[in-house]
Design a protein around this nucleic acid. Structure first.
Lengths: 167, 167
DNA sequence: TTGACATAGTTAGTTGGCTAACTATAATAT
DNA sequence: ATATTATAGTTAGCCAACTAACTATGTCAA
Protein backbone atom coordinates (compact mmCIF):
# COMPACT_ATOMS: atom_id res chain seq x y z
CA UNK A 1 0.00 0.00 0.00
CA UNK A 2 1.33 3.43 -0.96
CA UNK A 3 0.09 6.22 1.26
CA UNK A 4 2.12 8.85 -0.60
CA UNK A 5 -0.22 11.04 -2.67
CA UNK A 6 2.44 13.45 -3.94
CA UNK A 7 4.46 11.47 -6.46
CA UNK A 8 7.84 13.00 -7.38
CA UNK A 9 7.96 15.28 -10.40
CA UNK A 10 10.67 14.72 -13.01
CA UNK A 11 12.53 17.66 -11.44
CA UNK A 12 12.51 16.09 -8.00
CA UNK A 13 13.57 12.73 -9.42
CA UNK A 14 16.40 14.48 -11.21
CA UNK A 15 17.51 16.17 -8.03
CA UNK A 16 17.55 12.87 -6.17
CA UNK A 17 19.34 11.16 -9.07
CA UNK A 18 22.06 13.80 -8.84
CA UNK A 19 22.69 13.01 -5.21
CA UNK A 20 22.18 9.24 -5.54
CA UNK A 21 23.76 7.87 -8.74
CA UNK A 22 22.04 4.50 -8.35
CA UNK A 23 18.66 6.10 -9.03
CA UNK A 24 16.98 4.77 -12.19
CA UNK A 25 14.40 7.43 -12.91
CA UNK A 26 12.03 5.45 -15.14
CA UNK A 27 12.23 2.46 -12.81
CA UNK A 28 11.28 4.64 -9.85
CA UNK A 29 8.41 6.38 -11.55
CA UNK A 30 7.02 3.13 -12.93
CA UNK A 31 7.26 1.49 -9.55
CA UNK A 32 5.56 4.37 -7.76
CA UNK A 33 2.82 4.72 -10.34
CA UNK A 34 2.11 0.99 -10.11
CA UNK A 35 1.76 1.26 -6.34
CA UNK A 36 -0.33 4.41 -6.66
CA UNK A 37 -2.84 2.92 -9.12
CA UNK A 38 -3.08 -0.35 -7.19
CA UNK A 39 -3.67 1.50 -3.94
CA UNK A 40 -6.42 3.59 -5.49
CA UNK A 41 -8.00 0.45 -6.96
CA UNK A 42 -7.96 -1.14 -3.54
CA UNK A 43 -9.53 1.93 -1.95
CA UNK A 44 -12.19 1.99 -4.66
CA UNK A 45 -12.92 -1.67 -3.99
CA UNK A 46 -13.28 -0.87 -0.28
CA UNK A 47 -15.74 1.88 -1.15
CA UNK A 48 -17.74 -0.45 -3.39
CA UNK A 49 -17.88 -3.16 -0.71
CA UNK A 50 -18.74 -0.75 2.08
CA UNK A 51 -22.02 0.01 0.29
CA UNK A 52 -22.86 -3.63 1.00
CA UNK A 53 -21.71 -3.39 4.62
CA UNK A 54 -18.59 -5.44 3.90
CA UNK A 55 -14.83 -5.01 4.15
CA UNK A 56 -12.29 -6.76 1.93
CA UNK A 57 -11.26 -9.28 4.59
CA UNK A 58 -14.72 -10.67 5.27
CA UNK A 59 -15.71 -10.52 1.62
CA UNK A 60 -12.72 -12.61 0.56
CA UNK A 61 -13.61 -15.20 3.20
CA UNK A 62 -17.10 -15.52 1.73
CA UNK A 63 -15.62 -15.91 -1.75
CA UNK A 64 -13.12 -18.52 -0.58
CA UNK A 65 -15.99 -20.49 0.94
CA UNK A 66 -18.07 -20.20 -2.23
CA UNK A 67 -15.18 -21.58 -4.26
CA UNK A 68 -15.48 -24.87 -2.38
CA UNK A 69 -17.86 -27.53 -3.67
CA UNK A 70 -19.26 -27.93 -0.16
CA UNK A 71 -19.13 -24.16 0.69
CA UNK A 72 -17.08 -25.32 3.67
CA UNK A 73 -13.51 -24.91 4.88
CA UNK A 74 -11.53 -24.48 8.11
CA UNK A 75 -10.09 -21.40 9.79
CA UNK A 76 -6.52 -22.55 9.17
CA UNK A 77 -7.01 -23.14 5.47
CA UNK A 78 -8.92 -19.90 5.05
CA UNK A 79 -6.19 -18.00 6.90
CA UNK A 80 -3.51 -19.44 4.65
CA UNK A 81 -5.42 -18.72 1.44
CA UNK A 82 -6.28 -15.20 2.56
CA UNK A 83 -2.77 -14.46 3.77
CA UNK A 84 -3.64 -13.52 7.34
CA UNK A 85 -2.74 -15.14 10.63
CA UNK A 86 -5.03 -17.69 12.24
CA UNK A 87 -5.62 -15.15 15.01
CA UNK A 88 -6.87 -12.60 12.50
CA UNK A 89 -9.10 -15.22 10.90
CA UNK A 90 -10.72 -15.84 14.28
CA UNK A 91 -11.75 -12.19 14.31
CA UNK A 92 -13.00 -12.22 10.71
CA UNK A 93 -15.07 -15.34 11.37
CA UNK A 94 -16.47 -13.85 14.59
CA UNK A 95 -17.78 -10.92 12.59
CA UNK A 96 -19.18 -13.07 9.80
CA UNK A 97 -20.83 -15.43 12.27
CA UNK A 98 -22.44 -12.54 14.15
CA UNK A 99 -23.94 -11.37 10.88
CA UNK A 100 -25.17 -14.88 10.16
CA UNK A 101 -23.10 -15.23 6.99
CA UNK A 102 -21.14 -18.29 8.14
CA UNK A 103 -21.54 -20.91 10.87
CA UNK A 104 -18.97 -22.77 12.94
CA UNK A 105 -19.55 -26.54 13.12
CA UNK A 106 -17.33 -28.72 15.28
CA UNK A 107 -15.64 -31.45 13.29
CA UNK A 108 -16.06 -35.05 14.39
CA UNK A 109 -12.97 -36.54 12.76
CA UNK A 110 -10.51 -34.06 14.33
CA UNK A 111 -11.81 -32.52 17.51
CA UNK A 112 -9.27 -29.68 17.31
CA UNK A 113 -10.77 -28.49 14.08
CA UNK A 114 -13.82 -26.41 13.21
CA UNK A 115 -15.70 -26.47 9.91
CA UNK A 116 -16.73 -23.07 8.58
CA UNK A 117 -19.86 -23.26 6.48
CA UNK A 118 -21.24 -20.52 4.22
CA UNK A 119 -24.89 -20.00 5.21
CA UNK A 120 -27.70 -19.34 2.77
CA UNK A 121 -27.64 -15.74 4.00
CA UNK A 122 -23.93 -15.64 3.16
CA UNK A 123 -24.57 -16.97 -0.34
CA UNK A 124 -27.42 -14.49 -0.73
CA UNK A 125 -25.07 -11.67 0.27
CA UNK A 126 -22.59 -12.75 -2.40
CA UNK A 127 -25.39 -12.97 -4.94
CA UNK A 128 -26.00 -9.28 -4.35
CA UNK A 129 -22.41 -8.10 -4.03
CA UNK A 130 -20.70 -10.04 -6.80
CA UNK A 131 -22.84 -8.80 -9.72
CA UNK A 132 -22.31 -5.24 -8.54
CA UNK A 133 -18.56 -5.77 -8.15
CA UNK A 134 -18.22 -7.50 -11.51
CA UNK A 135 -20.23 -4.85 -13.30
CA UNK A 136 -18.09 -2.07 -11.86
CA UNK A 137 -14.86 -3.91 -12.54
CA UNK A 138 -15.86 -4.51 -16.15
CA UNK A 139 -16.41 -0.77 -16.58
CA UNK A 140 -13.17 0.06 -14.83
CA UNK A 141 -11.15 -2.11 -17.19
CA UNK A 142 -13.09 -1.46 -20.37
CA UNK A 143 -10.46 0.91 -21.78
CA UNK A 144 -8.11 -2.10 -22.10
CA UNK A 145 -8.77 -4.40 -25.06
CA UNK A 146 -7.68 -8.03 -24.94
CA UNK A 147 -4.28 -7.25 -26.43
CA UNK A 148 -3.56 -4.65 -23.75
CA UNK A 149 -4.71 -7.03 -21.03
CA UNK A 150 -2.24 -9.62 -22.23
CA UNK A 151 0.49 -6.94 -22.29
CA UNK A 152 -0.40 -5.98 -18.73
CA UNK A 153 -0.17 -9.58 -17.52
CA UNK A 154 3.24 -9.92 -19.20
CA UNK A 155 4.63 -6.70 -17.75
CA UNK A 156 3.38 -7.59 -14.29
CA UNK A 157 4.94 -11.02 -14.66
CA UNK A 158 8.33 -9.44 -15.41
CA UNK A 159 8.07 -7.14 -12.41
CA UNK A 160 6.92 -9.99 -10.24
CA UNK A 161 10.06 -11.94 -11.09
CA UNK A 162 12.15 -8.99 -9.94
CA UNK A 163 10.56 -8.70 -6.52
CA UNK A 164 13.05 -10.98 -4.73
CA UNK A 165 15.79 -8.51 -5.73
CA UNK A 166 14.01 -5.78 -3.79
CA UNK A 167 13.86 -7.63 -0.48
CA UNK B 1 -3.88 -3.88 0.07
CA UNK B 2 -4.68 -7.36 -1.33
CA UNK B 3 -4.41 -9.89 1.41
CA UNK B 4 -5.65 -12.73 -0.79
CA UNK B 5 -2.77 -15.08 -1.65
CA UNK B 6 -4.82 -17.67 -3.49
CA UNK B 7 -5.80 -16.03 -6.78
CA UNK B 8 -8.64 -17.72 -8.65
CA UNK B 9 -7.72 -20.32 -11.26
CA UNK B 10 -9.32 -20.12 -14.70
CA UNK B 11 -11.67 -22.91 -13.61
CA UNK B 12 -12.84 -20.97 -10.56
CA UNK B 13 -13.28 -17.81 -12.61
CA UNK B 14 -15.32 -19.82 -15.11
CA UNK B 15 -17.51 -21.18 -12.35
CA UNK B 16 -18.15 -17.69 -11.00
CA UNK B 17 -18.77 -16.34 -14.50
CA UNK B 18 -21.43 -19.01 -14.97
CA UNK B 19 -23.29 -17.85 -11.90
CA UNK B 20 -22.66 -14.13 -12.44
CA UNK B 21 -22.96 -13.13 -16.12
CA UNK B 22 -21.44 -9.70 -15.51
CA UNK B 23 -18.06 -11.28 -14.77
CA UNK B 24 -15.36 -10.27 -17.25
CA UNK B 25 -12.74 -12.94 -16.74
CA UNK B 26 -9.72 -11.16 -18.19
CA UNK B 27 -10.68 -7.94 -16.40
CA UNK B 28 -10.87 -9.76 -13.08
CA UNK B 29 -7.60 -11.62 -13.48
CA UNK B 30 -5.76 -8.49 -14.62
CA UNK B 31 -7.16 -6.50 -11.73
CA UNK B 32 -6.25 -9.14 -9.15
CA UNK B 33 -2.79 -9.70 -10.54
CA UNK B 34 -2.12 -5.96 -10.49
CA UNK B 35 -3.14 -5.80 -6.83
CA UNK B 36 -1.15 -8.95 -6.05
CA UNK B 37 2.10 -7.67 -7.61
CA UNK B 38 1.71 -4.21 -6.09
CA UNK B 39 1.08 -5.68 -2.66
CA UNK B 40 4.16 -7.87 -2.90
CA UNK B 41 6.22 -4.87 -4.06
CA UNK B 42 5.02 -2.91 -1.05
CA UNK B 43 5.84 -5.77 1.31
CA UNK B 44 9.28 -6.08 -0.26
CA UNK B 45 9.82 -2.35 0.21
CA UNK B 46 8.82 -2.72 3.87
CA UNK B 47 11.34 -5.52 4.23
CA UNK B 48 14.07 -3.41 2.61
CA UNK B 49 13.33 -0.44 4.86
CA UNK B 50 13.07 -2.51 8.02
CA UNK B 51 16.76 -3.41 7.60
CA UNK B 52 17.37 0.30 8.15
CA UNK B 53 15.01 0.42 11.13
CA UNK B 54 12.38 2.35 9.14
CA UNK B 55 8.77 1.87 8.09
CA UNK B 56 7.23 3.34 4.94
CA UNK B 57 5.37 6.12 6.74
CA UNK B 58 8.39 7.62 8.47
CA UNK B 59 10.62 7.08 5.46
CA UNK B 60 8.26 9.02 3.18
CA UNK B 61 8.21 11.89 5.66
CA UNK B 62 12.00 12.09 5.50
CA UNK B 63 11.87 12.07 1.70
CA UNK B 64 9.20 14.77 1.61
CA UNK B 65 11.39 16.93 3.83
CA UNK B 66 14.45 16.33 1.68
CA UNK B 67 12.49 17.44 -1.39
CA UNK B 68 12.19 20.91 0.12
CA UNK B 69 14.93 23.45 -0.52
CA UNK B 70 15.03 24.23 3.20
CA UNK B 71 14.51 20.60 4.32
CA UNK B 72 11.57 22.04 6.24
CA UNK B 73 7.81 21.74 6.14
CA UNK B 74 4.80 21.63 8.49
CA UNK B 75 2.76 18.73 9.86
CA UNK B 76 -0.34 19.77 7.89
CA UNK B 77 1.45 19.94 4.57
CA UNK B 78 3.30 16.70 5.21
CA UNK B 79 0.04 14.98 6.15
CA UNK B 80 -1.63 16.12 2.96
CA UNK B 81 1.28 15.08 0.73
CA UNK B 82 1.61 11.72 2.45
CA UNK B 83 -2.12 11.07 2.38
CA UNK B 84 -2.61 10.55 6.12
CA UNK B 85 -4.59 12.54 8.67
CA UNK B 86 -2.94 15.27 10.71
CA UNK B 87 -3.47 13.06 13.76
CA UNK B 88 -1.47 10.25 12.16
CA UNK B 89 1.25 12.71 11.18
CA UNK B 90 1.59 13.72 14.82
CA UNK B 91 2.44 10.10 15.62
CA UNK B 92 4.89 9.75 12.73
CA UNK B 93 6.67 12.94 13.74
CA UNK B 94 6.79 11.85 17.38
CA UNK B 95 8.64 8.73 16.30
CA UNK B 96 11.01 10.58 13.99
CA UNK B 97 11.75 13.21 16.62
CA UNK B 98 12.48 10.56 19.25
CA UNK B 99 15.03 9.05 16.87
CA UNK B 100 16.53 12.48 16.27
CA UNK B 101 15.75 12.46 12.54
CA UNK B 102 13.59 15.61 12.61
CA UNK B 103 13.06 18.50 14.99
CA UNK B 104 9.99 20.57 15.80
CA UNK B 105 10.59 24.32 15.76
CA UNK B 106 7.83 26.71 16.76
CA UNK B 107 7.01 29.20 14.03
CA UNK B 108 7.12 32.90 14.83
CA UNK B 109 4.86 34.17 12.06
CA UNK B 110 1.94 31.84 12.90
CA UNK B 111 1.96 30.67 16.46
CA UNK B 112 -0.43 27.78 15.67
CA UNK B 113 2.09 26.29 13.33
CA UNK B 114 5.19 24.15 13.81
CA UNK B 115 8.09 23.86 11.43
CA UNK B 116 9.43 20.35 10.93
CA UNK B 117 13.11 20.35 10.08
CA UNK B 118 15.14 17.40 8.75
CA UNK B 119 18.17 17.03 11.03
CA UNK B 120 21.65 16.13 9.84
CA UNK B 121 21.06 12.70 11.35
CA UNK B 122 17.89 12.47 9.27
CA UNK B 123 19.75 13.41 6.10
CA UNK B 124 22.50 10.95 7.01
CA UNK B 125 19.88 8.23 7.41
CA UNK B 126 18.53 8.97 3.92
CA UNK B 127 22.06 8.96 2.53
CA UNK B 128 22.34 5.36 3.69
CA UNK B 129 18.84 4.17 2.85
CA UNK B 130 18.26 5.78 -0.54
CA UNK B 131 21.26 4.27 -2.37
CA UNK B 132 20.27 0.85 -1.07
CA UNK B 133 16.65 1.35 -2.10
CA UNK B 134 17.55 2.71 -5.53
CA UNK B 135 20.00 -0.10 -6.19
CA UNK B 136 17.42 -2.75 -5.29
CA UNK B 137 14.69 -1.05 -7.28
CA UNK B 138 16.92 -0.84 -10.35
CA UNK B 139 17.50 -4.59 -10.14
CA UNK B 140 13.83 -5.28 -9.57
CA UNK B 141 12.83 -3.41 -12.73
CA UNK B 142 15.78 -4.37 -14.92
CA UNK B 143 13.74 -6.93 -16.90
CA UNK B 144 11.73 -4.02 -18.38
CA UNK B 145 13.43 -2.06 -21.13
CA UNK B 146 12.44 1.55 -21.79
CA UNK B 147 9.77 0.54 -24.31
CA UNK B 148 8.10 -1.75 -21.80
CA UNK B 149 8.26 0.93 -19.12
CA UNK B 150 6.42 3.31 -21.39
CA UNK B 151 3.84 0.60 -22.11
CA UNK B 152 3.40 0.06 -18.39
CA UNK B 153 2.81 3.74 -17.74
CA UNK B 154 0.22 3.86 -20.53
CA UNK B 155 -1.65 0.78 -19.33
CA UNK B 156 -1.68 2.07 -15.77
CA UNK B 157 -2.95 5.40 -17.04
CA UNK B 158 -5.88 3.69 -18.77
CA UNK B 159 -6.74 1.73 -15.63
CA UNK B 160 -6.38 4.84 -13.52
CA UNK B 161 -8.96 6.62 -15.63
CA UNK B 162 -11.37 3.76 -14.99
CA UNK B 163 -11.12 3.89 -11.21
CA UNK B 164 -14.04 6.29 -10.69
CA UNK B 165 -16.30 3.67 -12.32
CA UNK B 166 -15.36 1.21 -9.58
CA UNK B 167 -16.36 3.37 -6.66
C1' DT C 1 2.63 -46.59 25.87
C1' DT C 2 4.20 -42.59 26.78
C1' DG C 3 7.02 -38.44 26.15
C1' DA C 4 8.12 -35.06 22.74
C1' DC C 5 6.61 -32.53 19.20
C1' DA C 6 3.10 -30.67 15.84
C1' DT C 7 -1.32 -28.68 14.72
C1' DA C 8 -6.07 -26.13 15.36
C1' DG C 9 -8.09 -22.51 17.29
C1' DT C 10 -8.44 -18.84 20.65
C1' DT C 11 -7.11 -15.08 23.83
C1' DA C 12 -4.32 -11.12 25.31
C1' DG C 13 -1.81 -7.36 24.34
C1' DT C 14 0.68 -4.25 20.72
C1' DT C 15 0.70 -1.34 16.62
C1' DG C 16 -0.42 2.19 13.26
C1' DG C 17 -3.96 3.69 10.87
C1' DC C 18 -8.52 6.18 11.68
C1' DT C 19 -12.40 9.73 13.50
C1' DA C 20 -13.99 13.03 16.73
C1' DA C 21 -13.23 16.33 19.91
C1' DC C 22 -10.32 19.62 22.04
C1' DT C 23 -7.01 24.03 22.66
C1' DA C 24 -4.91 27.76 20.71
C1' DT C 25 -4.46 31.04 17.20
C1' DA C 26 -5.72 33.55 12.97
C1' DA C 27 -8.90 35.48 9.61
C1' DT C 28 -13.20 37.46 8.42
C1' DA C 29 -17.66 39.65 8.46
C1' DT C 30 -20.89 42.57 10.74
C1' DA D 1 -14.28 45.77 17.95
C1' DT D 2 -15.91 41.80 18.43
C1' DA D 3 -18.40 37.54 17.35
C1' DT D 4 -18.03 33.87 14.18
C1' DT D 5 -15.66 30.81 11.56
C1' DA D 6 -11.48 28.49 9.90
C1' DT D 7 -6.98 26.47 10.61
C1' DA D 8 -2.84 23.99 13.12
C1' DG D 9 -1.72 20.64 16.02
C1' DT D 10 -2.69 17.33 19.66
C1' DT D 11 -5.20 13.96 22.47
C1' DA D 12 -8.36 10.10 23.30
C1' DG D 13 -10.44 6.21 21.93
C1' DC D 14 -11.70 2.78 17.97
C1' DC D 15 -10.51 -0.83 14.60
C1' DA D 16 -8.30 -4.55 12.27
C1' DA D 17 -4.14 -6.23 11.47
C1' DC D 18 -0.14 -8.35 14.09
C1' DT D 19 2.84 -11.53 17.59
C1' DA D 20 3.17 -14.45 21.49
C1' DA D 21 1.35 -17.48 24.47
C1' DC D 22 -2.13 -20.63 25.78
C1' DT D 23 -5.51 -24.97 25.64
C1' DA D 24 -6.81 -28.96 23.50
C1' DT D 25 -5.98 -32.57 20.50
C1' DG D 26 -3.42 -35.50 17.34
C1' DT D 27 0.98 -37.91 15.71
C1' DC D 28 5.04 -40.44 16.05
C1' DA D 29 9.32 -42.45 17.64
C1' DA D 30 11.90 -44.66 21.52
Amino acid sequence: MLQLRDLPTPEILGKFADRYPDADVTAISGFLYLLRVATDLSLALDACLSKHDLLQGRWWVLILLMREESSTSTPSILAEKLGVTRASMTGLLDGLEQHGLVTRVFAKEDRRSVKIQLTSAGQAKLDVVMPDYYRRLRQCMQALDEEKRVQLQQLLGLINMGIPALI
